[in-house]
Simulated scan of single mutants.
Amino acid sequence: MVSAIGQPISRVLLSDQVYARVRGLIVSGDLKPGERLVESEIARQLTVSQAPVREAVKRLVHEGLAQHVPRRGSFVATVSQDDAASARAVRVVIEELAARTLAERADPAALADLDAQVEAMREAAAEGDVGRFRDADITFHRIVCEAGGNPFLPKVWAVMEPSLRGLRVVSDPTFTGDWAEMAEQHAGLLDALRTADPQLAGEKFAAHARGEIPGA
């Protein structure tokens, strides 16, 4: 457990505040994969009762950032190489189809939303805010699935997103590459969508999902 989670927090929406604090530590890599989330210790450090901590941990488990093991407790999620490979294989298919359908529609509102996420990634990279970067990254890909017009794509993405969040957070906590460069890679994906060329967009997103673009 990280020795100092931070200063005591106010007693307004405690579970939300505890969730945000612990989630931030997981996303940033300060809490490592496999590390136990000791509810009593978190409560002690934040000077709150265990009830809001328990609710916060449940949210993290639902989001895919933590795993609960009966009679042992909750832990920061770990991802096996097999799980990562399986998730990536499914993601390739989903994102290629989503990009193709969105490129065909060329929805201006969706493209504007995606541009906002790219800007959020750029700002987060400049500020060194890894958690905000990753949130903008996964939101970018969710928008692509939601905006394509195929009603099944957002449903499939909603099922996958908890696992993808876990994969993205715990599989690269020590990433030492260029976050700004990664933001520009997403700008390139957006440019592919703007061409209104479904084949090009699909190929670009499939390559990104396969990890062929550095930092994917």
Rank of each mutant, 00 (worst) to 15 (best):
T101E: 15
V18Y: 03
Y19G: 03
A51R: 14
T47S: 14
E39Y: 03
A43C: 14
A87P: 07
S40Y: 08
A77G: 02
S15K: 13
Q67C: 01
K32T: 11
Q45F: 00
S80A: 09
R88A: 15
A116L: 11
L37Y: 01
G131R: 01
L111H: 05
A126G: 13
A84E: 11
L60N: 01
A87K: 11
Q81K: 14
Q67M: 02
E55L: 09
G131I: 04
R105M: 04
V53M: 02
E96L: 10
S40P: 05
E41C: 04
F140H: 06
V79Q: 07
S15H: 15
S40R: 11
V27D: 14
D129G: 08
L114E: 09
P108Y: 06
F140T: 09
K58N: 10
Q17L: 15
V22P: 03
P52G: 07
R122P: 05
L25P: 08
A125D: 11
A99C: 06
G131T: 09
F140C: 10
L65I: 04
R132L: 04
V48W: 13
A116E: 14
P33G: 02
R36L: 10
D129Y: 01
I42A: 01
P70T: 04
R142C: 04
Q117A: 11
A120D: 08
I138F: 06
A109E: 15
D129E: 08
Q17A: 13
